[in-house]
């Protein structure tokens, strides 16, 4: 019996926690679902299962930050059904300052903020801490200095409505 019949190629994967921005593109591109992402209580957990990996290296080619390191490894064939989680990485999520939902990984938010400051000289720090839904709502309601509408106007209208209700 040749060795290939009893061994199969997989790979040892390691995430670089300093580089990873938690963008999930590795999990999207993985054909076997060896990289799984779960979001829970303000944290994103990226887990990698050795038993499912084909060593196709799509994840490392796709990763925009070069945060994935792969080395080929052999493991006994036939044992691959046992699910072994080899590597885990936890990334903090950014909490929306308006509605409190976790919407994007914090390293990604920081990276975007720095990128736009470098490239365009725009400070996004007040906008990027809001989730996309809240951001558009604030734009629609009119943010100060942008549409000439202030948040105060809306709260004022709410107060008027409440006083109407109180009168009735």
């Amino acid at each position: 019996m040749s060795p290939s019949a009893i061994l199969r190629v997989g790979s040892n994967l390691s995430f670089d926690s300093a580089k990873c921005i938690g963008c999930e593109s590795c999990a999207i591109v993985c054909p076997r679902g060896a990289i799984q992402i779960t979001k829970d209580q303000g944290f994103e957990t990226i887990s990698y299962t050795f038993a499912l990996c084909l060593y196709c290296r799509r994840c490392s080619f796709t990763c925009p930050e070069d945060a994935i390191k792969l080395t080929a490894a052999l493991e006994p064939a036939g044992f691959s059904t046992s699910v072994r989680v080899e590597e885990k990485l936890q990334i903090e999520l950014q909490i929306c300052e308006r509605c409190g939902s976790a919407f994007a990984p914090r390293p990604m938010v920081r990276k975007i903020e720095n990128l736009i400051r470098e490239k365009r000289g725009i400070d996004l720090s007040s906008l990027i801490v809001l989730c996309p839904q809240c951001r558009t709502r604030i734009l629609a309601e009119g943010s100060p200095g942008r549409f000439g509408l202030s948040q105060a106007l809306l709260s004022q209208s709410q107060q008027v409505a409440q006083s109407h209700e109180a009168k009735q």
């Binding site: 921005i21 963008c23 999930e24 593109s25 999207i28 591109v29 796709t62 925009p64 919407f103 994007a104 990604m108 938010v109 990276k111 975007i112 736009i116 996004l124 906008l127 990027i128 996309p132 839904q133 951001r135 558009t136 734009l139």
Partner: peptide, 23 residues
Amino acid sequence: CIGCKMCVTVCPFAGCLINPHTR
């Protein structure tokens, strides 16, 4: 597109959206 969602995170107008079924 690699689906990293950076455009979704940065757009002030919600111009880039995620398809929840295909990501």
